[in-house]
Nucleic acid binder design. Structure first.
Lengths: 253, 253
DNA sequence: ATGAACGTTGCAGTCAATGCAACGCACCGG
DNA sequence: CCGGTGCGTTGCATTGACTGCAACGTTCAT
């Protein structure tokens, strides 16, 4: 809507690909160098980009700090965290918390596995939306037409042979997930990694977040992981209760 | 430099304080509601802000994802990480990696303590610049006039009785740190937490990052923590060697 | 039913963003 | 030593994008 701001913001994902010099930024934006310079300067004044010693620009510290604050302000995260830790203590595997926002699903919290072999993931990283168990739960809760429209405009990369291959398959999977109230990802993203996930609901019953337990095949088989499902669901329900204000929170400062 | 972009970017820290509605944003910016609306819309289109169900705005997912990419692109981080993990495995305490950028010092990596009692901190959080051991190392390396100018315009909050109280005291501390090549924070931020830190240098000898080991008093005394200093310094030197290309990296894909 | 509070839209004026061209500077090869 | 090339940077005139206004549509609460 606002051309100048639009251009300025377009610089950020561009720099996320790696450092770039002025000329490169101007080219990619399709504007004159002087224009790009002024935009970059403004971004710099706000700490959103940093000018490294070779004069090239990259993303700045303020951006990272802002994102940090953004995550700390998510109340669902604060409420869920102790539950995630407790679950991790009981099963030992990696525990994730994810939310959905404008077509992206991202991890907002994580408790590391206590086994030596761990899956790779990072807080803040957008998840593989077509296969991740948490993504299925979050998307399954969308109203039908939105869900359909969203599914159709997605790409369906074949990470593995078990990845969701197409929109119809994905929509079918979402129906199943919505009905059963939990989801799995059995090697759909990384061949050797399995996940079970459960939804966290607000007072109105809408899914506000999803949590999952992930473990590589070498630690536990998919079947063994599935035995944790009741525990995962109980944990998610506990968080739901607290988040929606149904459960009186005891013993918290 | 660019008024529109300047205003738009000013919205972000404002929203970092917590969700705000249109009127509030307009007020804080000192612009008309319609102007604020258009700025927010543009930010929204880029996923930088999110409109929650109560119509209020808060920081968005793309911001978090961008920050994530920003950190993953820092090569120092990638190089350092395995070293930090190894150090953590040997001593068990929390290990941090921090960089300096335009007057801010922030943690860009962290390996959690394996002791049950842990210090609180988060990747991306700007550190207490006047007391943190890593901050001292990073600032001590600035050219003298910059260092002085920077120190003078800082605030010196007294987190504890041992916090650095003033610019002169801080500058004296920086001199000491630069000379000895390592730094400590003994209860200067949190009464019961101590730190030892060492610098990581690039090929030109400039300090590009700093790493630290932190532990609460209840786990080890300050004296015991100091016995780790040689190990910390060796680790930092190892990272320096690899970063500056002096050490051939072995066994890495 | 009435009003207040809030987000939203269309519009005309003007101020701020744009592209241009010229400049300074560093680097490189002759 | 000098001319050339490739950068980032600056001042300026033009214009078009941004602004503030006022009016409208909702959604609440009274």
């Amino acid at each position: 809507m606002s051309q100048t701001v639009d251009r300025a913001l377009s610089i950020l994902p561009l720099l996320a690909e790696g450092p770039a010099d002025l000329g490169r930024v101007a080219d990619r934006l399709g504007v004159h160098k002087s224009t790009a310079l002024r935009l970059l300067r403004t971004l710099h004044d706000h700490g959103m980009v940093y000018r490294q010693s070779d004069q090239r620009y990259r993303l700045g510290a303020r951006l990272i700090a802002l994102a940090q604050e953004a995550m700390e302000n998510l109340d669902i995260r604060e409420i869920a965290h102790p539950h995630l830790v407790r679950l991790n203590e009981r099963c030992g595997h990696t525990v994730h918390l994810a939310v959905h926002e404008d077509g992206e699903v991202l991890y907002i919290d994580k408790v590391e596995s206590r086994y030596p072999v761990r899956m790779y993931s990072r807080i803040g990283k957008p998840v593989a939306i077509t296969v991740a168990a948490v993504a299925k739960l979050l998307l399954a809760d969308l109203p039908e037409h939105e869900r359909r429209a969203f599914a159709e405009q997605l790409d369906y990369p074949l990470y593995t042979a078990r990845s969701t291959p197409s929109a119809p398959a994905f929509l079918r999977e979402l129906d199943k997930v919505r009905e059963q109230g939990w989801a799995t990802d059995l090697g759909g993203h990384e061949e050797s990694i399995n996940c079970v996930a459960a939804p966290i609901r607000g007072a109105d019953g809408r899914v506000v977040a999803a949590m999952s337990v992930s473990a590589p095949n070498v630690v536990v088989t998919a079947d063994e992981l599935l035995t944790l499902l009741p525990l995962v669901r109980r944990t998610a329900d506990g968080i739901s209760g607290e988040y929606s204000g149904r459960t009186p929170v005891k013993g918290t400062a």
